[in-house]
Amino acid sequence: MKKLVLIMLLAVTSQLSLFSQEIESTEFRLEKNAIQLNVTNMPISIALKTISNKRIASEISFGIAALNNDTKYDDYIVNLKLHYLLKRGRKTNLYTGIITGIEFVNDPTFDLTTPFIGINTQYEYFIGKKKKNSLSIDISYIYGKKTYRKSYSADWGSVEYVGTFENSPFWFGLGYSFYF
């Protein structure tokens, strides 16, 4: 597990250094904004996406998800993506970047928040000449884990337990964006 965290941190650090180089070398003027609807194997979310005139894009999203195996979409996820544009085609964009956020898990037996961090790749395809609409495919690898403590007391004594909530590591998603 330590190895995995180390690899993730290295990936994140390298991404951050790319961003910082880009931010330092360019003026951070905004070029495009979009609203994006994402359907993934984890959250169904709505995002506000901002693309700079150079190679930086950011995305902040709010989603609902069924995180604790009860099949109820009663958990919430807020996440932020920072993307670096790897390749720009006539109708396509290929991004890579980092994703971080917080999961709010709602469960009848415990209630906890789980921060997460990961790496993300997004392929975007624009529809139409005006490039107002696009479809995208997202793949993320996420690491997020949280321990929680529960106890029960009665006249015979008490019992205590430390459990672990671990989120699903892979997110696959399809998205639709409307640029305005």
Partner: peptide, 21 residues
């Protein structure tokens, strides 16, 4: 009347603190 929680993916440990009864 007791703790409930998601089934752990690998084993479990509990701490019991019994009263002197």
């Amino acid at each position: 009347d007791g703790i409930s929680g998601a089934t752990p993916i690998a084993g479990i440990e509990l701490k019991i603190s019994p009263e002197n009864i």
